Amino acid sequence: MFHRTYLHHDPIAISYLFGCAGQGQAAVIDPVLPPQHYLDEAAALGVTITYVIDTHLHADHLSTARDLAHRSGAAYVLHRSAQTAFPFHPVDDGEVLTLGNVTVQALHTPGHTPEHLTLLVTDHRRAEEPWLAFTGHTLMVGDLGRTELASDPEEGARALYRTAKRLKGLPDHLQIYPGAFSGSVCGRTLSGNPSSTIGFERRYNTALAITDEEAFVAMMLQDIPPRPVDFEVTRALNSGYATVSAS
């Protein structure tokens, strides 16, 4: 299995290219850069992009996922609950996507947004259990994602509490690769380290450590970071309900 991480600073985000080099199949997670970047990277590795996956419909930046999927011939993947003006490849909780010797299990992890996905990745050449999770803006290094950009803040916080309990049940050794790092408006106390493990976050992530739902909701509704500029328009653009002006 190969795995490439791309850190972006304008906007602050992380995208990924990974897959099975032996079988020549790859997926891209949360693309931000122009599609040609990922196409060039895939070509250099001798792989074909089979899936382009957005962990959620972003409100802080424009996704290039649909354009990349169109140009690569890949399926554009979202959770089935995503509300869009365009067709996509829907996945349900527990569904598995195959990339040669690598499999990707979709977990529905709402809270940051209602349709949010976490993706558990297994390299079957190494073991028959996942070794990493792409967690998007749900579980990040040092914090959990804000909950009011796509839903009622309290409703989102209660969904995120249930999601956090589920993620805490994953094995300690599981590596996590989130969709943002320090400087992103999608969290409060994000680390500049772009990866971690479930065990480390369970021990040192203050938000993840809260075990009482009411205390968790109260925490999530305090000290909410400033909202991204035009976040509603950005999410509408990523959902296909708005178009970029030619001017």
Rank of each mutant, 00 (worst) to 15 (best):
G169R: 13
V121H: 03
D230P: 02
R125S: 13
L170S: 12
L170M: 15
I210C: 08
H56R: 03
S196G: 00
A180N: 11
H173Q: 13
I29K: 01
I29F: 09
A21R: 15
Y204A: 07
Y177L: 15
A157D: 10
H79W: 00
L139S: 09
R202Y: 06
G142L: 01
G46I: 12
R158Q: 10
G156S: 13
A106R: 09
H37Q: 14
T84F: 00
S184N: 06
D40I: 10
T64K: 02
L17F: 09
P178K: 03
Y16W: 11
G24M: 13
D172W: 10
D212C: 08
T189Q: 12
Q23A: 15
T163W: 02
S196N: 00
H70Y: 08
L221Q: 07
E95K: 08
L149G: 02
G100C: 04
A164S: 12
L107H: 03
S15L: 00
E201A: 09
G240M: 03
L78I: 02
H173E: 13
N193A: 09
L237Q: 07
A207R: 03
Q222I: 02
A106G: 10
S151P: 03
L139E: 02
H116W: 03
D123C: 07
V52H: 06
Y204K: 08
H116S: 14
A74K: 11
P225V: 05
S63M: 11
P114I: 01
A43I: 03
D212A: 14
D10P: 06
R235C: 06
A127I: 00
T118E: 14
H173F: 15
L237I: 09
I14Q: 03
G46P: 07
T113Q: 08
E128A: 15
L17G: 11
L17Q: 04
S72G: 00
L160C: 06
A85Y: 05
L45C: 09
L120F: 08
A209N: 05
V77W: 09
Q175N: 13
R158H: 11
G24A: 15
T84V: 05
L99A: 02
Y161E: 07
P31K: 00
S247P: 12
L39M: 14
S184W: 00
A21T: 13
E154R: 13
A209R: 12
Q83I: 12
E213K: 10
H173A: 14
D40M: 11
M140G: 04
S63P: 11
R80F: 07
L190C: 01
G169S: 13
T118Y: 01
A215K: 13
L132M: 08
I198Y: 06
